[in-house]
Design a protein around this nucleic acid. Structure first.
Length: 951
RNA sequence: GCAGGGGUGGCAGAGCCUGGCCAAAUGCGACGGGCUUAGGACCCGUUUCCUUAGCGGAUGCAAGAGUUCAAAUCUCUUCCCCUGCACCA
C-alpha cells in the first residue's frame, strides 16, 4: 500500500466525479465552515487540526445522507502581508529562513516584495495543500477577503451595524512607532511582543512658590497618603512644560518625548539637570504636607515621568534610597508613613515575613527577606514584587476615610477622587517597555482621536447575542463557559485602522476596516460567491444584499435598481436560504475570545433568527514531538513534508483524532508508525477475506457481531459530538484488537470478517478517507466509501451475554496459565486441567447480594428454613452456604447479577474445550460442582469456575 | 491579577458528568520468553508492594479534610500546571 499513490488516485477520482461540489437540492442541507487561512505562509501539519476536524464533520454528515457544503476562502486583509513584503525588501534573514523551511525557491522569494504577489502565491499554495490532505471542499466558491465584490458585502454589513447604532466614536490608546508613524501590534515588533498598555495615575505635586507641578506617575496612587518626599534623578535632563494648555509641569526630558504622543506637551525654556530640582519643595495634593525633593538612585528618566513619589513604608526602593541619604546626613527628618497593613491570619503573619524587633516599617521587613544573595537591585525588585502582591492581596487601608478597604478598591476610589478634583491625570504607559518596533525604534503609546469602535458592550446587542449562544451547540460542551465569559467581557473594539489591506471603512474612507471585524459573517457569502463572481462590484448595492440575506424588498425592483438579472438574484437568495439554516462553525480554541464571539454578535446584528449560528466547534493545537510547534523552535512540519513522508491519512488520523477536541494532539514519529501499522493491518485483512471459508456462525462469530454493533453505536455517538479520540480508539485501535482475538479462535468466517471490516472502513472514512476508499475498493465495491451510507447498529446483535462469556473464557485462560506457571515453579509436572462450574444456589446468593449488598439480611435468611427454601438451598448445605456468603462479603462491591445458570456455563465451557486446551496447552475437562469430587470444587463461583490442575 | 481548562501508574492518555465487576482501558517504553544466523517485524508473559495453585491483602489516581455501606469519581480547602486577556491575525 503506497500512500502517495492511493492519495492521488482517490483525490483525482473525487475531483472527476465532483462529489464535493454541492448545490441546492431537495435533500436536507448542512454547511460546515472553518476560519479561513491567512495567506502569509503555506500550511503546516498544525493547520490540519482545525481544517481536518471540519472535514471529518463534513464527511460524516455527508455519509449520514445530508447535502453537505464545505466551502473555503482566504484571508488577506490587514497588515501582515504588508509587513511581510517590507521585511523581504529588507532581506530579513529570519523570514527568509522560514520560507526556506517550506521549500520556497529563491526566485519566488525574490518576487515577494509585492503584497499582491504574496497573497496570490499563498492562496495557490494553501489550496494545493488543502487538496493534498483530502479536504472535501467545494472549491467553486472560494474567494479572497480583499476582492472588491466581497468588499461590497462588508460595506453592506457595516451599513447595518451603523444603522443599529453599534458604531461609536472615541479615543483609543495604541502602541505606536514614532519613526514609521503608525500603530504597531505584535506582528510589527521585534520578537513579536505585544505592546502592553496600562493606565496609570499621574499625580500633580504643586511646587511651592510656583504655578507649576511636579508630575509623578504611580501604580499605587492610594499610597499618596504615605508620601514623604519626591525623587528625581539628579543626572538626568528635565524640562518645564505645559501640558494640553492645562498647566505647567516638571518632568524628565526623556519621558516627555514618549508622552508627547498622547498628551500635548510644549517645552518651556531649556532643559536642565535634575539636580536643579532638589532645591524645590512641593505639596502633597491630598494631605497638604510639604515635601522635599531628593535624588533617587533608582529613578529612570524614561520610565513614567522621571519623577517618583516616595513611600518608604511601602516601597523597598524608596526606603533604601532614604536610608542611603540618611547615611550621607540628608533627609534626616523623613519618617515612613504607613497607609495600609496586612493583618495576621490566625495569629500567623502572611508568608514568612520575619517580625523583626523595631521594624514596624513593612518595606523594611520585605527587604530583610531578600537581603542575602542577589545584587541589591535584584533583591529590591523581589522585595517590591512580593510586597505589592501581598499588600494588594491581603492589605487593608488604615487611612481615615478608607479604613479597612482593600488596596484595589482604595486605588480606584483615590484615583477617581484625585482625577475629579484635578489633582491627578491618567496616562497610558507601556507596561512591558521597552518594546522595539521592527524598524528599531522604541514603541510609545499614542492616543488615537476619532477612533471608531464596534460597541459590543451595547446592552441590547449583548442580550441578543447571549440568547443566540444559549440556543446553539458548542463542541466540546465544556468550552461553553469560556464563551459565556467572552460574551460578558467583550466591550469596545476598535474597528478601523490607518494601514492594511481590506475594505475602506464606510464612515471614514481614510481608514480600513480592521481585519477581524471584516470576517465575522463572511461564511454566509459562500452561499452566493460563485454566483456573484464576475458581476461588476458597483452593481452589488445594499438592496441586493438586503434582498438576498434579509428578504427585504422585492425581486423585480432589486433587479432593476442593480441591473442584475433577476434569475441570478433569485438563485442567490435560494442558495442562502437553503444552506444557511444548519451550519457548523470551526476554529481553534484561541479564537473564542475574538473571532468566534464576534461571529455570533455580528450574526445576531445582521441576520434573522433562522440564520443565527447553530453550532460552534473549537479545537486545540498540535504538538510536535511533545513541543509546541513554533517558528522559533524550528519544529514546524510543513504539510507537504508530512504527507509525503507519512501519507495523508496517517497525518490526518494523528493530528485530528489522537486527542479530544479541547486538548492538544500529538504528532510524533512513533505515533505515526503506529497508525501506519494499523492501516496496513486492515488492508492486509481485507485482502485475505477471499481466502476465508464461510461456515455456520459460532459463538465467536456472534461475539464479533456483538462487538461490531456495539462499536457502531458508541462510535456514532462519539463522532456526533466530535469526540474523535474516543472514536478513533474504538474504530481503529480496538477494531484491530478484536480482529486479532477473533483470528486467534481459528477458522475465520469470511462473511463475518467482511461485514466487520466493511463497517469499520466506512466509519474510518471521515478520518482516513483515502485508505478507506482503497480498502473499500479492494473489498469489491464500485462506489465511493465517501458517499456510502454510514453503518447502522443492529441492536439485536449486541449481547452482553455473548461478550461476557468470551470474557469468561479469556479469564480462564489467563488464570490457568498463571496457576500452571506457579505449579511448574514448584517442580510439579501438570497433566491436565479440570474446570468446575459453580452450583445454581451460589448464583442465587450472588444475585441476592448483588442487588442489596446487605450481608446481614442474607445471613438471616440462611438461618431460617423458609429463607433456605426461598433461596433454593438444601438445609444440609446451610454451612457451605454461610461460608460462601462470608467469602463473597469480602468483595461485596464486585458482586454482579449473574444471568446464566450452571448448565449454560457448563455448555459454554464444554464447547470451548478444544480452544481452551489449545490456548493453555493442556487437556481441559469440565464438571459440575455438585458432581465433583475435587477438593477445589467449593471454590467455584458463578462465572468463575474453580481451576483444578491435575498432576 | 482576572477568566477558562487541567493535575491519574516510567511516559502519553481513558475513566470523573450518571460513586460499586477500577490496581485503573489503550498505546508507547522497559524487562523476561518464543521466532530468527542476527536485527526488525510478529507472538506470549511481566511491569505498586506483599502473598499465593489463580478467586487474598496493603498502599494508591496533586495534598488535606468531609459525605457515603462504598470515592480516581461527589463537596470544601490548599498547592501546582496550561491557555487567553483585544484592536493583533
Amino acid at each position: 500500500m503506497d500512500y502517495k499513490e492511493i492519495d492521488e488516485k482517490w483525490q483525482k477520482a473525487w475531483d472527476d466525479s465532483k462529489i464535493f461540489e454541492s448545490d441546492v437540492s431537495g435533500r436536507e442541507s448542512y454547511m460546515v465552515t472553518v476560519a479561513f487561512p491567512y495567506v502569509n505562509a503555506p500550511l503546516h501539519i498544525g493547520h490540519v487540526r482545525t481544517y481536518g476536524t471540519a472535514d471529518v464533520l463534513a464527511r460524516y454528515k455527508r455519509m449520514r445522507g445530508l447535502n453537505v457544503l464545505f466551502p473555503m476562502g482566504f484571508h488577506a486583509t490587514g497588515t501582515p502581508i504588508l509587513a511581510f513584503a517590507k521585511r523581504l525588501k529588507n532581506n530579513d534573514p529570519e523570514l527568509i529562513s522560514e520560507l526556506k523551511l517550506f521549500h520556497i525557491s529563491d526566485q519566488e522569494i525574490a518576487k515577494m516584495t509585492d503584497p499582491e504577489y504574496i497573497a496570490s502565491y499563498f492562496v495557490n499554495e494553501i489550496e494545493k495543500g488543502m487538496h493534498r490532505v483530502g479536504l472535501s471542499v467545494d472549491w467553486r466558491r472560494k474567494f479572497v477577503s480583499t476582492e472588491p465584490f466581497f468588499g461590497k458585502f462588508i460595506e453592506w454589513q457595516f451599513g447595518i451595524l451603523n444603522g443599529k447604532g453599534y458604531l461609536i466614536k472615541g479615543k483609543h490608546p495604541v502602541g505606536w512607532c514614532p519613526n514609521e508613524n503608525q500603530a504597531v501590534g505584535m506582528h510589527d515588533t521585534k520578537k513579536d511582543t505585544e505592546p502592553d498598555i496600562e493606565k496609570e495615575a499621574a499625580i500633580k505635586f504643586r511646587v511651592d512658590g510656583e504655578d507649576a507641578y511636579l508630575l509623578c506617575t504611580t501604580y499605587r496612587p492610594e499610597t499618596v497618603f504615605g508620601v514623604t518626599n519626591l525623587f528625581v534623578n539628579q543626572d538626568s535632563d528635565y524640562i518645564k512644560c505645559s501640558i494640553g494648555g492645562e498647566g505647567t509641569y516638571y518632568l524628565s526630558k526623556a519621558s516627555s518625548l514618549i508622552l508627547r504622543h498622547q498628551i500635548g506637551i510644549e517645552q518651556i525654556g531649556a532643559e536642565f539637570k535634575g539636580s536643579e530640582l532638589l532645591a524645590k519643595k512641593c505639596t502633597n495634593p491630598i494631605t497638604g504636607t510639604t515635601l522635599p525633593v531628593f535624588n533617587g538612585f533608582f529613578v529612570k528618566e524614561d520610565v513614567g515621568t522621571g519623577v517618583v513619589m516616595s513611600v518608604p513604608a511601602h516601597a523597598p526602593f524608596d526606603y533604601i534610597a532614604i536610608d542611603k541619604l540618611k547615611k550621607e546626613g540628608k533627609a534626616l527628618d523623613i519618617v515612613p508613613i504607613r497607609v495600609l497593613e496586612v493583618p495576621a491570619k490566625d495569629g500567623i503573619e502572611p508568608r514568612q515575613i520575619p517580625k523583626v524587633e523595631d521594624m514596624d516599617i513593612p518595606a523594611l521587613r520585605y527587604i530583610e527577606m531578600f537581603k542575602s544573595g542577589a545584587s541589591e537591585s535584584e533583591a529590591l525588585e523581589s522585595a517590591t514584587k512580593l510586597q505589592y502582591k501581598e499588600e494588594s492581596h491581603y492589605g487593608k487601608m488604615i487611612i481615615k476615610g478608607y479604613e479597612g478597604m482593600s488596596e484595589p478598591e482604595a486605588r480606584e476610589k483615590v484615583t477617581k477622587n484625585m482625577v475629579e478634583a484635578g489633582k491627578a491625570m491618567e496616562l497610558y504607559i507601556l507596561a512591558n517597555a521597552p518594546v522595539a518596533c521592527r524598524c528599531g525604534y522604541k514603541v510609545v503609546v499614542k492616543v488615537v482621536e476619532d477612533q471608531w469602535f464596534l460597541n459590543y458592550g451595547n446592552a441590547g446587542w449583548k442580550k441578543e447575542a447571549k440568547e443566540a449562544l444559549s440556543g446553539l451547540s458548542v463542541l466540546p460542551d465544556k468550552s461553553r463557559k469560556a464563551f459565556e465569559a467572552a460574551f460578558d467581557w467583550i466591550d469596545l473594539r476598535a474597528v478601523a485602522r490607518a494601514q492594511g489591506l481590506g475594505t475602506r471603512f464606510p464612515l471614514d474612507k481614510d481608514r480600513i476596516i480592521e481585519s477581524l471585524s471584516d470576517s465575522t459573517i463572511y461564511m454566509s457569502f459562500y452561499t452566493v460567491s460563485n454566483t456573484l463572481r464576475g458581476i461588476e462590484p458597483e452593481k452589488l448595492r445594499p438592496e441586493l444584499f438586503d434582498y438576498i440575506f434579509l428578504g427585504k424588498g422585492d425581486l423585480s425592483s432589486v433587479s432593476s435598481s442593480t441591473g442584475i438579472d433577476f434569475q441570478i438574484i433569485k438563485r442567490c437568495k435560494e442558495s442562502f436560504d437553503y444552506w444557511y439554516r444548519s451550519t457548523s462553525r470551526h476554529s481553534g480554541a484561541d479564537l473564542i475570545f475574538n473571532h468566534l464571539t464576534m461571529y455570533v454578535f455580528n450574526h445576531v446584528a445582521v441576520f434573522p433568527k433562522a440564520n443565527w449560528p447553530k453550532q460552534i466547534v473549537v479545537n486545540g493545537n498540535v504538538l510536535s514531538e511533545g513541543e509546541k510547534m513554533s517558528k522559533s523552535l524550528g519544529n514546524i512540519v510543513p504539510l507537504v513534508d508530512g504527507v509525503e513522508k507519512y501519507g495523508t491519512d496517517v497525518i490526518r488520523a494523528l493530528v485530528i483524532a489522537s486527542a479530544d477536541l479541547f486538548s492538544d494532539s500529538e504528532f510524533s514519529e512513533v505515533a505515526a508508525n503506529g497508525v501506519d501499522e494499523r492501516f496496513r493491518y486492515l488492508y492486509d485483512m481485507a485482502m485475505k477475506i477471499s481466502s476465508m471459508e464461510s461456515g455456520e456462525l459460532r459463538h465467536i462469530d456472534y461475539w464479533m457481531y456483538s462487538k461490531l454493533n456495539r462499536k457502531i453505536k458508541s462510535a456514532t455517538a462519539q463522532i456526533e459530538k466530535l469526540e474523535l479520540r474516543g472514536f478513533s480508539t474504538s474504530v481503529l485501535y480496538d477494531s484491530i484488537l478484536e480482529l486479532r482475538k477473533y483470528l486467534s479462535r481459528g477458522e475465520p468466517n469470511g462473511i463475518v470478517v467482511r461485514d466487520y471490516i466493511s463497517s469499520v472502513i466506512l466509519m474510518l472514512s471521515p478520518i482516513a478517507p483515502h485508505v478507506s476508499e482503497e480498502i473499500w475498493h479492494q473489498l469489491g465495491n464500485g462506489t465511493f466509501s465517501s458517499t456510502e451510507k454510514w453503518p447502522n447498529a443492529d441492536e439485536s446483535m449486541i449481547s452482553d451475554k455473548v461478550e461476557g462469556e468470551e470474557d469468561l473464557l479469556d479469564g480462564i485462560i489467563t488464570d490457568s496459565k498463571q496457576v500452571l506457571a506457579l505449579i511448574k515453579k514448584s517442580g510439579k509436572e501438570p497433566k491436565s486441567i479440570k474446570l468446575i462450574v459453580a452450583d445454581d444456589w451460589k448464583r442465587q446468593l450472588n444475585n441476592r447480594l448483588g442487588e442489596k449488598r446487605d450481608v446481614g439480611s442474607v445471613m438471616k435468611l440462611l438461618n431460617s428454613k423458609e429463607g433456605l427454601s426461598a433461596l433454593g438451598i438444601d438445609p444440609s448445605a446451610k454451612d457451605k452456604a454461610m461460608k460462601y456468603v462470608q467469602q463473597l462479603s469480602k468483595r461485596i462491591n464486585a458482586i454482579r447479577k449473574v444471568d446464566s445458570m450452571q448448565e449454560d456455563e457448563y455448555r459454554l465451557l464444554d464447547e470451548a474445550k478444544s480452544y481452551l486446551s489449545d490456548s493453555i496447552k493442556y487437556p481441559v475437562s469440565v464438571e459440575l460442582e455438585s458432581k465433583s469430587s475435587s477438593q477445589r470444587a467449593a471454590n467455584a463461583m458463578p462465572l468463575r469456575p474453580s481451576i483444578d490442575i491435575l498432576s
